[in-house]
Design a protein around this nucleic acid. Structure first.
Lengths: 338, 338
DNA sequence: ATGAAAGCGCTAACAG
DNA sequence: CTGTTAGCGCTTTCAT
């Protein structure tokens, strides 16, 4: 038996069950009207043949795919994973699946990815960030489906927005440090503008320092985003070597902040007595490491949840114009700072 | 202008460019023979109309989807992310995309997911783990495409395998501890059989202890998999409270092991002098935390790379029967143990 | 290098 | 509750 047995189709199932293909089609939808006897006969026939529904055909004919495209910068990032989880749960009730793609923090890669995703005809698309190549923007504008930008508050949104201001979030951290008398503050972040959220956080740091009349030049370039724990540690080493009078350091993420903490441990530098350390993201590690890490919780799960609600409203026609939902990140004071 | 402008089709592009739809189709494939002049006219027409290729139609007609389905237990796990990266890079050269799904460490959820994925007609499917529901197994066997099980060495594989023995990997850790004179060893892991790899690791621990004639009953149940850092810390607290003479603890993953380390720090328990701690996975944190963490590197990237090679060989017809590729995890000795 | 005809497997639309 | 007809947008196949 060497013939590459083609997978059975609905017609095969219909023949075996003694009904028309249309009835088989109905038997596979939950709301359709098929008698219980007929349905179970059909499901049994399908099982016998090992039939698996072909959604490529269904999608083409019905012009519906029942999935939502989502782009995130990276697999393996707890923050974005939380956003995806919020989205996923919110969309599940309506039978919408998520098709996920990774941009690797690169807006060129985002362009390729967005086109790939749109070719599959999603019902809506959720992108991370508000800065895109001109072509990505055009693709999104012409897609004819709801577009949601997240994790940012773009000046000129493509469509809907569920996000927060990365710059303002970092400003709140600077304000906090200044309010407790700390003035010599450094920032550890990426050395390229690849990660637009990281860039916004750095810009927010500089602006906040200037607003307080403080020196905004204690900037340590830690590498190409995303910044790893190791790169955070190395950057902290350079900071301690070159600007030893620094009183506090704000890191672009909790991962680099944790790396920075470990470097302090290795050098016997006491945190927060000798230097305060803050992160961004409120990853699990921030709450459990010793000392625990002062950070900013950007409500990633909530972003996903709100985006899902928005998508359902737009698809239902409940939501009229483009919506912008601005969330307020929460400053989490912990042991690594006053 | 309120009419829901339908997206343009190849026919629209063909009309504007003054050619047949077939020529447009060819212009969008790289290897097809179309004159340069015609092609650029077509691409310009497509751009003018904002045309985006419809892969639902292409997939149906050509009976090819050019993607490989991959199931992993969790988004946001650096080990599985590495496997996906290895796969992704290996498949890219052949123009194969990855369609990713998450089982949430649940073989029931895996069943739903596998069926969803197979409905989209992938060219191959890669699953994490070698234990499935009977129906999942049947679906995979009848799918008519290459099936690869990873991160395990199943007794009775569905098709191809790229993995390692979780039990043997933990045994090597037990052997190491015994060889340096440590005999009172505990294991921190999940309290359910939900995570099959975690279950295998615990079984490997028990078997190894018995083989050495040692007490295999220092088992601390840490919660429902995946075990978080916090759950690792709580479990370590219980271990120190109830079995204070324990000399070493092996944790089901680096995340729980790091949590355990922090609990020791909080209690002033010295690692490794008072108790040794080992993890599993060789996540980035294992190499950078203080003390750094003894662990096992299961070569996650290599698993993905080999799986990709295997898929290409099978699709090319180069690989004949089912292959089993067994990798050897590497024990990483670091500061948290002798 | 380009075109014409046919059809992938399913379901919308209409009938009964 | 069930069946018939047609066609979604592309690409295979066969021409020229």
């Amino acid at each position: 038996m060497n013939t590459p047995r083609k997978t059975p189709t609905m017609a095969d199932v219909a023949r075996l069950a003694g009904v028309s293909p249309m009835t088989v089609s109905r038997a596979f939808k939950r709301d359709a009207s098929v008698s219980d006897a007929t349905r179970s006969a059909i499901l049994e026939a399908a099982d016998t043949l090992g039939y698996v529904f072909d959604s490529t055909a269904s999608n083409l004919r019905s012009q519906r795919t029942d999935f939502v495209a989502v782009t995130i910068p990276s697999i393996n990032n707890a923050n974005f994973a939380d956003t995806v989880r919020g989205l996923s749960e919110g969309l599940k009730e309506r039978g919408l699946q998520i098709l996920l793609g990774y941009t690797d923090y690169d807006i060129q890669e985002e362009e390729r990815l967005v086109e790939q995703l749109l070719r599959r005809r999603p019902e809506a698309i959720v992108v991370t960030g508000g800065r895109h190549t001109p072509r990505t923007r055009r693709l999104l504008e012409n897609a004819g489906i709801p577009v949601i930008e997240t994790w940012d508050l773009p000046d000129n949104p493509v469509g809907h927005v569920v996000g927060f201001s990365n710059a303002a979030a970092v400003r709140s951290m600077v304000d906090h440090f200044v309010s407790v008398g700390i003035t010599r503050i450094a920032f550890i972040g990426g050395d390229a503008d690849r990660d637009t959220r990281g860039t916004d956080r750095r810009a927010g740091f500089i602006a906040a320092m200037q607003a307080h009349g403080l020196d905004p030049d204690r900037l340590i370039a830690a590498g190409t985003p995303p910044i790893s724990m190791r790169e955070g540690a190395d950057a902290m080493g350079r900071l301690l070597d070159t600007l030893p009078d620094t009183q506090a350091v704000i890191c672009v993420s909790d991962l680099s902040a944790f790396g920075a903490l470990t470097e302090c441990q290795r050098r016997g530098v006491n945190v927060p007595q000798q230097i305060a350390v803050a992160g961004f993201g409120d990853y699990e590690i921030a709450g459990i490491c010793v000392p625990s890490l002062t950070t900013i919780n950007p409500l990633p799960r909530e972003i996903g949840k709100r985006a899902a609600e928005l998508i359902l409203d737009v698809l239902d026609g409940t939501q009229e114009g483009p919506a912008t939902i601005a969330l307020e990140p929460i400053l989490m004071r912990r042991q690594s700072s006053p």
